[in-house]
Amino acid sequence: MKAFDLVIAKDAAHAVTLLAEHGPSARVLAGGTDLLVELKSASRVPRVVLDISRAAELKGIELTDQGLRIGALVTHTELMRFPLIRDLFPALVDAAHSIGAVQTRNLGTLGGNLVTCVPSMDSGPTLVALDALVTITGPGGRRQLPLSDFFAGPRKSMLEPEDLLLDIVIPKENLGKPADFQKFGLRKGQALALVNAAASLWVDWERDVCVAPRIALGAVAPTVIRARAAEAYLEGRAITPEALAEAGRIAVAEARPISDFRASADYRRDLIAVLTRRALANAYARATAKRDGEKQ
């Protein structure tokens, strides 16, 4: 690696000050699993690398008045092991588990994965399907926006150069919302998603219909996207295998997959229909299991 200066931020406020001081050329280092690869191959490295990995307030997972707050520096392994996440959101555990290999999950952070804005990221879809918000801090103070709006384009987030991603919040009303994550890669280990899909839904058991369905897709558009037409189709509809299959077909039309060396656009379209249907069916199965558990 070419030489750079390493600056260590004590906390988030310090990091923001340092970002303002060193300007847009400074790069933020969290888990390093993407940044170090980039720095090793780059012909020009930034003058300053800002290490935020010791900032305590960017760590930890906790329930707040707003919902479940996940610090940006939480690693994929920490997420997978955290009892509250395992209890409330097995889909998030599955999504984290599908990232890289053990070594990458032990270093890589949730915030780091999200800010890369790589279209095939595995952290994004489930959180988007749970209406997660991101908290950003910068020179103008703190602000929140939906995660789905945070993805501006391939490898481009809504972060300004002096901004820092603080945490991800799953809103209170979605705590325990049944969800599922599906990924299709060419291998089980260390594979990028050809397509990934997440779904969440509530069920109105009185009428046995779907309420507030969410479908999020990855690797099929410049960013993680919501399949809003498929969601609208399912809203208030009885959950039958035919309805879930139809939602999958509708989702296909909402995506803009590309052909590359991993898969053709046509193959990805087939995958979208299948993975969307599976994610919805599994979310419904989790809803059913939850209801049956509560009855006992």
Partner: peptide, 18 residues
């Protein structure tokens, strides 16, 4: 691969300072 604080990590992806 080495073990840092109980976790297997890729030593090539960690700065020594970290």
């Amino acid at each position: 691969t080495v073990i840092v604080d109980g976790n297997a990590v890729n030593a090539c992806l960690m700065l020594a300072a970290q």
